[in-house]
Design a binder for these strands. Structure first.
Lengths: 208, 208
DNA sequence: TGAGTTCTGGATTGTCAACTCCAGAATCGG
DNA sequence: CCGATTCTGGAGTTGACAATCCAGAACTCA
C-alpha cells in the first residue's frame, strides 16, 4: 500500500504528463497510451498506480487545482484591497497573454468536460472551486472588517460573482484567442466591488 | 446536391438527436451509433448527410446557437432597459432551475470541448458568441442613445462583461448544481450596467 | 544479506467507435 | 410515367483504446 520514493516520483511523472496532455487536448482526447509514452512508463505501471483512467483523471484534478492556486500565490491569499485585486487581474491577464490565450482555465475546462459524466470528479471540482472562491471571499471580508467596504457589501456574493466573471472571461478568451474578454470581465467585477468601497480617494464608483 | 423534403426532415432528425445527446454526454461521449439509434436512421444515412462526425458536430453548433438565441427571444432583441435586463436574467435563472442546473450552456460546453481540437468548430463558436454579444450590445447602445446611460458607458465592454458573467455563472451553476452562481453573476453584471445609469428614480448605484 | 514487497516491461485481449460499401426503395423532374 | 437522382438498410472493415497478465528487476527494512 505504501509508495516508495521511486514510486512517488513515477506516479508524479504520470500525473504531470496526463495533466499536460489533458489540458492541451481534453480528457477524452487523451489516451492512456499517450500518457504512457509522454511519461516514459509502461502500461502496467499506469495501472499499478491508478485503478484506471477515471482514477487518473481525479488525480489530475487535484494536481491542477493545486497548480492553479499556487500559481496565484502569494497574491491570492492577500486579495484584501482594490490594488491587490487589480494586481491579481494583471497576473491572470499576463498568464493568458503568455499562453497565447490557449487552453483556458485548467479547472474550468475539466469541470465542463466531466460535470455530466463523472459524479466523483464533479465533487472534486466543486471542492476546488470552493477553495478558490474562499480565498477571494476572505480578502473581501477583511476589507469589510477593516472598514474599506460598506456593511452592505456581501463578501460571499461578491466573491462568487468575481469567480464567475473570471471563468466566463477565460472561456471567451480561450474561444476567441484574445485577452480582452478576461480583462474586461475582471475589470467589471472589480469595479463592482469598488462600488461598495467607502467614499475615500480610492473610490471610483460615484456619479460624476 | 439538393435535398428533397424527406431528406431535409431526416437530416434535421439526425441533428436534433445529436444535439440532445451531445448536450447530455458531451461530444466525445456521444458515438455516431447512439445518434443513429436515437434518430432512428441507419448508418449509411448519417454518412449520406454528413461527411463524418466532425461535420455533424458543426451542424450541431449552428443548431444549438439558433436554439439558444431563439429561446431568449423576444427578450433578447429588446434588452434596452434595466428592467428588460432583469427580466432576461430571470428567464435564464428559470431555465436553469427547470433543468435542475444540468448541462450548462449548450454553446459554452461545446466551446470548451472543441476550442483546442477543432479550429473550424472554434470559428463557428466565435461567430455564435458574437451574435449573442451583439444582441446585448445593441440594447445597451440604445439605452445610451436614449440618454439612460452616461456617455462614458461603453456598450461593447459592458456587453462583453455581461456575456462573460453569464458564461461563468452557468459553468459554476452546472458544476455546483445550484442556480446561485448564474443568478449572482448576472445580478452583479446588471448592477455594473446600472452604475452607468443617469441619476433618475431607476438608478440604484449611488451611495446610501 | 536476504526475505518480502514494490516496481517495471511488454505482449496480449476484447470491445467499441468511425467509417465504407453495395444493393434496393422512394422520390423528383420533365 | 420514366429516367435520373436521392434516400435507405444493414453487413462488413479497420483501427484504436482501455485494461489485463505475468515474469523479472529493484528496492526496503530487519
Amino acid at each position: 500500500m505504501g509508495l516508495t520514493r521511486k514510486g512517488e516520483t513515477t506516479r508524479a511523472r504520470i500525473v504531470d504528463a496526463a495533466a499536460g496532455l489533458m489540458f492541451e487536448r481534453g480528457v477524452a482526447g487523451t489516451s492512456t497510451e499517450e500518457v504512457r509514452r509522454a511519461a516514459g512508463v509502461s502500461s502496467s505501471q499506469l495501472y499499478h498506480y491508478f485503478d484506471g483512467k477515471q482514477a487518473l483523471v481525479r488525480a489530475v484534478i487535484t494536481h491542477q487545482t493545486d497548480a492553479v492556486l499556487s500559481a496565484q500565490q502569494p497574491l491570492l491569499s492577500r486579495l484584501d484591497s482594490l490594488d491587490a485585486l487589480r494586481a491579481w487581474r494583471d497576473l491572470i491577464v499576463a498568464i493568458q497573454t503568455r499562453g497565447n490565450c490557449e487552453g483556458g482555465c485548467p479547472i474550468g475546462t475539466l469541470a465542463v468536460e466531466l460535470a455530466e459524466i463523472d459524479p466523483d470528479a464533479r465533487a472534486d471540482l466543486v471542492a476546488g472551486f470552493a477553495r478558490w472562491e474562499g480565498a477571494i471571499r476572505d480578502g473581501l471580508a477583511a476589507m469589510r472588517e477593516r472598514g474599506e467596504l460598506r456593511a452592505d457589501a456581501d463578501p460571499d456574493r461578491l466573491a462568487l460573482a468575481t469567480l464567475a466573471a473570471l471563468q466566463g472571461g477565460l472561456l471567451l478568451t480561450q474561444v476567441r484567442r484574445d485577452v480582452a474578454p478576461v480583462a474586461t470581465a475582471l475589470d467589471a467585477a472589480i469595479a463592482h466591488v469598488a462600488s461598495f468601497a467607502v467614499a475615500t480617494h480610492i473610490a471610483r464608483a460615484g456619479t460624476p
